[in-house]
């Protein structure tokens, strides 16, 4: 506590800390790496010495389990199952979301018509829909894909709408000066202006889809990472649970990174960064 107060007092112009060059990028990376290493070591110590119970796997055991599971090909099977559902639902849902969002953003009557329904539906947790979906479409792929499709559509639609509303009116007025018709305005002004919002919506919905997918797989599936995580509990295979969790985090991180980098490079002109 005293350290914190000293920190605050020593501060000059901005809220900087007590290590003088902490803002340098190399120091930041160094600290991050240290933090991870220390964290892993702590984990090993806690799990290996302090607790030593099957309920708390050590990093070493987790790595072992990972290698085992990966070598047997089952991990790949789980990953494939999860990613396939995710990608199909996310991409189709995203397309729907773009179309709906543009329609609602550009045509005020459409928006007014759907607005009360949307303002209510957005508060229903997506995962709650897995129950009726499994009743209607069984425990197979369709119910999960539909769930991800639904949640993706929603998020992308909201973001796209936001993008249409954020359009500077001067852009449209300039086009009207040049006697552009309404369809010209839509394709040459509205659509390109909305691109960064659409991409942001797709990115957010991808992260969200991972979360919903895990829950759905726990509830109604016999394959996939969520299934791996939940099912391993019955065998007290906590190392496998951790494998599932970490693979999930890594997959999410990788997908987000790939998507964001690709989009930033290809769509730099449209002001997506």
């Amino acid at each position: 506590m005293a350290v914190l107060f000293r920190t605050l007092r020593r501060e000059r112009q901005t809220l900087s800390g007590w290590l003088p060059n902490v803002s340098a990028p190399t120091t930041a990376v160094g600290l991050a790496v240290c933090s991870v290493v220390v964290g892993l070591a702590l984990w090993q110590v806690l799990a290996g010495w302090a607790m030593r119970s099957p309920l708390f796997p050590t990093p070493a055991e987790t790595v072992h389990a990972f290698v085992r599971h990966a070598a047997s090909g089952k991990l790949l099977g789980d990953v494939n199952a999860s990613m396939a559902r995710l990608l199909i639902g996310w991409s189709v849902g995203g397309l729907w979301g773009i179309a709906l969002g543009l329609a609602m953003g550009a045509f005020r009557p459409v928006r007014y018509y759907f607005e009360p329904a949307i303002q209510f539906l957005r508060f229903i947790p997506g995962i709650a829909w897995i129950t009726p979906f499994t009743v209607w479409w069984g425990v197979g792929e369709l119910s999960k894909v539909m769930l991800i499709l639904y949640t993706s559509t929603f998020i992308v639609m909201l973001n796209t709408m936001m993008g249409v509303f954020a359009l500077p009116p001067a852009r449209i007025r300039a086009a009207r000066c040049f006697e552009a018709g309404p369809f010209d305005i839509f394709f040459h002004v509205t659509l390109p202006s909305t691109v960064p919002f659409i991409v942001t919506g797709l990115r957010i919905s991808m992260g969200n889809s991972f979360m919903i997918l895990v829950a759905a797989e726990m509830l109604a599936s016999d394959r996939g990472l969520g299934f791996l995580i939940f099912n391993s509990r019955s065998y007290l295979a906590t190392d496998l649970i951790f494998v599932g969790i970490i693979t999930l985090g890594a997959l999410g991180l990788a997908s987000d990174f790939v998507f964001h980098s690709l989009a930033a490079r290809l769509l730099r002109r449209y002001r997506y960064r």
Partner: peptide
């Protein structure tokens, strides 16, 4: 009656330029 190319506008600020 409506905007036309015989009366083009130069706006204040950069809002009316297309960044792409």
């Amino acid at each position: 009656v409506r905007p036309g190319i015989d009366r083009v506008v130069v706006f204040q600020g950069e809002d009316s330029l297309y960044p792409w």
